[in-house]
Amino acid sequence: MIATAQSAYASPGLSFSVHDCRHLCSNPAVNSKKGTWDKVFSNAALHWILRDPDTRMDVLRDVHAALKPGGSFVFEQGGAGNVAEVHTALIGALVAHGVPLTEAQEASPWFFPSEAWMRTALNDVGFEVEKLEIEYRPTRLTESDGQGSGGLEGWVWLMGAAFLERVSPEKRDVVVKWVVGVLESVEKRHEDGSWWIGYVRLRGVARKRE
């Protein structure tokens, strides 16, 4: 992705790099210009980045520190209730296949905050929230190829990988099929056989106070 970006969008004033965003300001490119950035933008990533409770607020503090006064933080991520059916089924599948409940819950790689949580957190680190909203957005999945790609099965293999790591490799295909089987009557539509997943998006615009 970085090589593609560098090739397609090369510019003297633009650079691309890989960095652990739990520690944004430890990136020399960010830290050397801390307090001067116009905007920080994130799409469909914060629910992974904020998963670690030990660094959750540090992420928001680093974003705030990177921005110049009046700079904006624009984001969209999974919000409270995002993919709730699949999330629940994945936990249930692990428990059904011998993983203790607490361990199954801790396997989740996501943090889906509510609008209220995010508003409080942004205010606490010094942002002025200009816009914050939750949208329920059912999304049609691609068609399954019957070999583990596409459809709900492919989604679980890709997005639910952290759950599957809690069982032995030989059990993973069984767990995925268990999840798909349990959710068929919930996620599959009778009129055309299409599969849908219940995305809930939390999006916002916050500005660093002048």
Rank of each mutant, 00 (worst) to 15 (best):
E103R: 11
D173V: 05
A89V: 03
A116M: 11
G81E: 10
L24Q: 07
W48N: 09
L141C: 08
D62Y: 00
R189F: 01
W157M: 04
V74G: 06
D20K: 12
E210I: 08
L60K: 12
Q6M: 07
S11Y: 00
V200C: 11
K131Q: 12
K131S: 13
K33S: 14
V167P: 02
V40W: 02
G81I: 12
F73M: 09
L164S: 06
A206H: 04
T142Q: 10
M159L: 11
T36G: 04
A161H: 09
V182R: 13
E130R: 15
V95K: 12
G71H: 03
R166L: 00
L50N: 07
H64I: 07
V83R: 01
F75A: 07
E128P: 00
A44G: 07
R203L: 08
R61S: 12
M159P: 02
L67A: 10
P169E: 04
V182L: 15
A104E: 05
G70H: 09
W48R: 03
L14V: 13
S15C: 13
V63N: 02
A116F: 06
G13D: 10
T4R: 15
E135F: 06
L101C: 05
C21Q: 07
V83N: 08
E184Q: 05
L122I: 05
F112I: 02
L122R: 06
F73R: 08
S15T: 13
A84C: 05
R203F: 09
A89C: 05
R137P: 00
T102H: 08
S11Q: 13
H190Q: 14
M118G: 10
P113V: 03
Q6P: 02
F75D: 10
R203T: 10
E76G: 07
S15G: 06
R22D: 06
H64C: 11
V174S: 13
S108G: 04
V63L: 08
P113R: 09
R207M: 15
F111M: 06
R140C: 09
L46H: 00
H19A: 14
A96R: 09
G193L: 09
S168P: 03
V125S: 08
G126P: 11
V83E: 05
T139P: 02
L67G: 04
G13E: 06
V186S: 14
N82A: 01
W178M: 12
F41C: 11
A121P: 13
Q105C: 01
F41H: 15
L60P: 06
V200D: 01
E85T: 08
W195M: 11
S11T: 02
V186I: 15
T4M: 12
E106H: 03
E153A: 11
W117D: 15
Y136W: 05
N123A: 14
E115Y: 01
A161F: 04
V179T: 07
H87I: 02
R189G: 04
P69N: 10
W117S: 09
P113C: 04
T36I: 01
F16K: 12
S168R: 15
V40N: 03
C21Y: 01
G13P: 00
R207E: 14
E76Y: 08
G126D: 12
G79I: 03
V175M: 07
P169H: 05
L202C: 07
D54H: 14
